[in-house]
C-alpha cells in the first residue's frame, strides 16, 4: 500500500472523527443548556406544528434572510442549495449499487457546482464592496470562502477539465468504509480536493459553520408562543421555587 493511500486514509478517519465527535459535543452543549424564559421573536406560531413549519421555512427557504436582504439571500441560498445537490451527487462514490435517486440527481449536481461557486463569489464580493460587511469580516471569514471555492474549483476541474480516475476514488472510499484499504489515485487535483474537504470537516465544529446546527436550537425561532397558557420553567429557575419563594 502506498504511503499516499495510508496518509489519506488516516486523514479521513481523523477528520471524520473530529467532525462527528466535535459536532456531537456542540449539539449536546446546546441541548443541555436551558432556555429559562420564553423569547420567541413574535409574531410566532402558537402550536408545535406551527414551529416546525417556521423552522422548515427558515432552513429550506431562508425566510428571515429573504425579508432582510435580497442580495445576501440570493447568493446565500444559491450556494446552499447547490451545495446540497453537489453532496447528493457525491453519494455515488460511497454507495454500491448507486441509489436510483442519486443517479437521478446526477445531472443537476454536476451543474450545481458552477452555481455553488457563483454564489460563493457573490458572498465574497460583498465582503469587499459593502462597507458594513467589510467592517465585520475577519480573516477567517475570507479563508472559509476561499476554502469552499477551492473545493468547488478543484472538483469542477476534475469533472470538466482533467478527468480523474473516478473508479479508483470510489474504491478508495468504499475501502475506507469497510476498513479494507484500496489504493488512492495520485492525481494532484484530487489530492487538493480531498485535503480541502478534510480541512472543512475539521474546522466545522470549531467555527462559524456551527450556524448549521445552531439554527435548530435558536430559542427565538424554535419556541412556541404560549406563555400565558403553559408555565415554562427551566431547571435552574424551577429550583428557586422549590426552595420556597426565596428572593435571591
Amino acid at each position: 500500500m502506498s504511503f499516499l493511500t495510508v496518509l489519506y486514509a488516516c486523514i479521513f478517519y481523523a477528520a471524520t472523527a473530529m467532525f462527528v465527535g466535535g459536532l456531537a459535543l456542540k449539539i449536546r452543549s446546546y441541548a443541555r443548556t436551558p432556555a429559562p424564559l420564553k423569547i420567541p421573536t413574535t409574531p410566532a406560531p402558537t402550536t408545535a406544528g406551527g414551529v416546525v413549519l417556521r423552522m422548515a421555512r427558515e432552513v429550506a427557504l431562508f425566510e428571515s434572510l429573504f425579508k432582510s436582504n435580497k442580495w445576501i439571500w440570493l447568493f446565500g441560498w444559491l450556494f446552499h442549495v447547490s451545495l446540497l445537490l453537489v453532496i447528493l451527487r457525491h453519494l455515488r462514490y460511497f454507495t454500491d449499487p448507486v441509489w436510483f435517486w442519486v443517479v437521478w440527481a446526477q445531472p443537476f449536481g454536476t451543474y450545481a457546482g458552477f452555481a455553488m461557486v457563483a454564489g460563493l463569489g457573490g458572498l465574497w464580493a460583498r465582503r469587499f464592496l459593502v462597507d458594513r460587511v467589510r467592517y465585520i469580516s475577519t480573516p477567517s471569514d475570507h479563508l472559509i470562502l476561499a476554502l469552499l471555492i477551492g473545493i468547488g474549483a478543484s472538483g469542477l476541474g476534475m469533472r470538466f477539465v482533467a478527468h480523474t480516475d473516478i473508479v479508483g476514488v470510489k474504491e478508495f472510499f468504499r475501502g475506507l468504509m469497510t476498513f479494507n484499504l484500496q489504493p488512492l489515485p495520485a492525481d494532484p487535483a484530487l489530492l487538493v480536493h480531498l485535503s480541502l474537504v478534510a480541512l472543512l470537516m475539521v474546522i466545522f465544529p470549531i467555527s462559524k459553520l456551527l450556524h448549521a446546527p445552531g439554527v435548530f436550537f435558536s430559542p427565538t425561532r424554535n419556541q412556541i408562543d404560549n406563555p400565558r397558557d403553559r408555565r415554562h420553567l427551566a431547571p435552574w429557575a424551577a429550583a428557586q421555587f422549590e426552595s420556597g419563594a426565596k428572593q435571591d
Binding site: T33, V133, I136, D141, K208, F217
Partner: peptide, 20 residues
C-alpha cells in the same frame, strides 16, 4: 451555561451582514 440563547448566538453568527 444558563441561557441557551447566549450560547447558540455566540457561535452561530456568520457575519453575513443582513442585520447591519
Amino acid at each position: 451555561g444558563k441561557y441557551r440563547s447566549l450560547r447558540v448566538f455566540m457561535d452561530a453568527c456568520v457575519h453575513c451582514g443582513a442585520c447591519t
